[in-house]
């Protein structure tokens, strides 16, 4: 009797170990591509010159972190990059209310096929790459592109406007593309939330004499706030992570100064520019600050809503 019990127990541990061995290859994969790369941070403390091995390069300690703030031109550059990053992130947050409006007003349309057609077509840009967005922008906004020819034909301008090769309004320009790409898709989440609202709420309010706009303002809008709050929190946590694809494809020698966000700056410094080590130092700082932001936001969310976002 005793033997069989212990046999059963050992069989159970055997099984639980076997499950572990089954996912061991995946653990190794995850380790290799998520944890192991962290060792690269030591390159921030060396003067790394690519063909050489790390052991052949000089250990420079905090030099790269110091140069970030020591040299005047460097400080000016970092300042500009931070300004770009924060501006784009802030504009992104401000425009994140658009999908809510989109969803609320689309919900007022009763014609079903029209609604789903709008939903499908407006969400489409979300699924194309930034390279394609750039190609679209190129087709529409270059010298001989659609917009310039139209404006010229109407006699509004005589020389084509340089939309792409110019530094003017680059923040709004980038934000506009972001909105174009994300508006319809962003609204889908809210539309799903609206579909989940109890229809009796509307009935009751209607009986009380509320009109359409009242319903939109007093019932629909408040019920979307939790979702909006979570998304806003996430974008606060991702304040420094604009990603680089968008800015990379739109970047050229005219707009470089104002389009360089942190992610793009790291690429430009590291892969095409001066120093792999300096780029590593910057991205290391960025990662750490992002992690701290995420932690703070998470704590805040726990305190205010009693629910963590991660």
């Amino acid at each position: 009797m005793k033997e069989s019990v212990s046999g059963k127990a050992s069989k159970r541990t055997l099984q639980s170990r076997r499950l572990f061995y089954c996912i061991l290859p995946f653990i190794i994969l995850s380790f290799l591509f998520s944890y192991f790369p962290l060792h690269g941070w030591i390159y921030a403390f060396y003067d790394y010159k690519p063909p050489l091995k790390l052991s052949q390069c000089d250990f420079v300690g905090w030099k790269w972190f110091e140069t970030l703030f020591a040299n005047k031109t460097q400080v000016a550059q970092i300042f500009q990059v931070m300004k770009n990053t924060l501006a784009m992130s802030l504009l992104g947050m401000l425009t994140s209310v658009f999908p809510i409006g989109f969803a609320i007003f689309l919900n007022e349309i009763k014609c079903k096929w029209f609604k789903s057609l709008v939903q499908t077509l407006t969400a489409l840009p979300n699924f194309i790459s930034w390279v394609l967005v750039y190609s679209v922008a190129f087709s529409l906004f270059t010298d001989g592109g659609l917009v310039n020819t139209l404006l010229q034909n109407m006699g509004l301008i005589t020389t084509p406007i340089k939309f792409l090769d110019s530094d003017a309004h680059i923040y709004s320009w980038m934000t506009l593309w972001n909105v174009w790409k994300g508006l319809g898709w962003g609204a889908i989440l809210y539309l799903a939330a609206i579909a989940g609202i109890d229809s009796e709420l509307y009935e009751a309010a209607r009986v009380d004499g509320a009109n359409r706009f009242c319903l939109m303002k007093e019932i629909t809008l408040p019920s979307l706030m939790p979702t909006f709050f979570v998304l806003l929190m996430m974008s606060v946590a991702n304040f420094l992570n604009n990603g680089m694809d968008q800015y990379f494809v739109f970047q050229n020698s005219f707009n470089k100064e104002h389009i360089q966000v942190l992610d793009l700056y790291v690429y430009n410094v590291g892969m095409t520019g001066s120093s792999l080590s300096l780029a590593t130092a910057i991205s290391m700082l960025k990662s750490i600050i992002s992690l701290i932001l995420l932690t703070i936001v998470n704590i805040l969310s726990k305190k205010t809503r009693g629910e963590s976002i991660i």
Partner: peptide, 9 residues
């Protein structure tokens, strides 16, 4: 880890 450490990896 960031772009450069990923590249090195």
């Amino acid at each position: 880890a960031g772009l450069i450490p990923m590249f090195i990896t």
